[in-house]
Amino acid sequence: MIVCKDISVSFGAKGKDGFHAVKNVNLEIEKGEIFGIVGPSGAGKSTLVRVMNLLQQPTSGQVLIDGVDITKAKGSQLRQVRKNIGMIFQHFHLISGATVCENVAFALTAGGYPKEKQRARVEELLQMVGLSDKIDVYPQSLSGGQKQRVAIARALANTPDILLCDEATSALDLESTEEVLSVLRKIKETSNITIVFITHDLDAAKKLFDRIAVMNKGEIVEVNDTYSIFANPQHPVTKMLVNRNFELDVPDFVADAIQADEELYKIYYVGEKAYDPVINEVAKRFDVDVSILHGKIDYIHRQALGILVIKVKGKDDIRKEAVQYITDHVYRLEKLK
């Protein structure tokens, strides 16, 4: 378990008003979960995750890993801590002058793995990430996704309990992203590793994370399970990120053309709650017109999340009753206009 206690990181001159990248962050990350930290760029996500293996010293606060405060670790003690925490980066950071084998073996040497057994272990790790045939090539000849998989092999060389991923898919195209995510999922299935994943990409978040913390301007503004973050975002920043991800914005000219007897709503339905009957039922029971402007169904952890943008047209009081009926029969209703 990783516990962040009151973590703050400021840059700039001591004592003066520097830039506060991370402000009083408290987090508990359970053993064996895939924990995501999302947020707009500049929110302090990377700084926070770098504190977890002390690539960044916090200005104040503590990081406890399985109850042990790592923030005071120095020298060989710090190296022991880091051996137990793998990390992968947005730009892979492989040694360009070393082969794939040498890159992975570097981590093994760092971890004190016996030299003569290293090649066998590298082969094993490359098999896990599906790159057995690339063992003796230089990183330059690999695609982005392949480089990142080598980086994963390197990060996991010393069988750490924790894997930190700093924007690990952000420099990759869709296909390579999927490649990397599926490797991570596979690793998760076969071990009880804890993964902390930083990203601004909510698509990756949806596919991979168990729980999500939303970060904005150095603060954690919301923590919840992935499904709830998408189905029922609370904080304005979360709402903005989720809405942007769903891409269900109604064009301005449509919203502006709303008449006095019309209203625009966004309705969310979850799991088995069918939505078609609700819309049908409303049209039957009340003297209103309901038209669907936009909609989609997303699957998060095999659970369906549906969203519809609807326009309800009718007399004020009847419309109000109709909307009440819809509210009672869907997961959530949000008035747009």
């Binding site: 051996k83 040694i95 070393a98 570097f106 040497t109 760092a110 010393n158």
Partner: peptide
């Protein structure tokens, strides 16, 4: 690239090893 050095640091490598191999 400092990033490559950081990646090496994150494996728990010692400074002499990083100087030599990175």
């Amino acid at each position: 690239d400092t990033g490559v050095i950081e990646a090496a640091l994150s494996t728990g490598a010692s400074l002499p090893l990083i100087l030599r191999k990175v």
